[in-house]
Amino acid sequence: MAATKEEIVAGLAEIVNEIAGIPTEDVQVEKSFTDDLDVDSLSMVEVVVAAEERFDVKIPDDDVKNLKTVGDATEYILKHQS
């Protein structure tokens, strides 16, 4: 079953917490991965791969650079999840 927006944000929060050690409550839709959450370009790849597995979605490298905020990633996953 497809995840809801809230479930995706919560899932991303857990992933970012696991990879970058950021408290889950800090991971909110308006936050920028790079500027606010200490997720650098390489950690972003780990976040993306973890999100792919968790939400059964493919996020090609070309699209990763457009995912600036948690909201961007959430919308992308909402739209592309199978």
């Binding site: 370009s41 390489l42 972003m44 790849v45 780990e46 993306v48 791969v49 490298d61 990763v64 650079k65």
Partner: peptide, 12 residues
Amino acid sequence: QEGQAVFRWAVF
């Protein structure tokens, strides 16, 4: 190199 693409391929 394309850092992110290489990183993803190399690790996973």
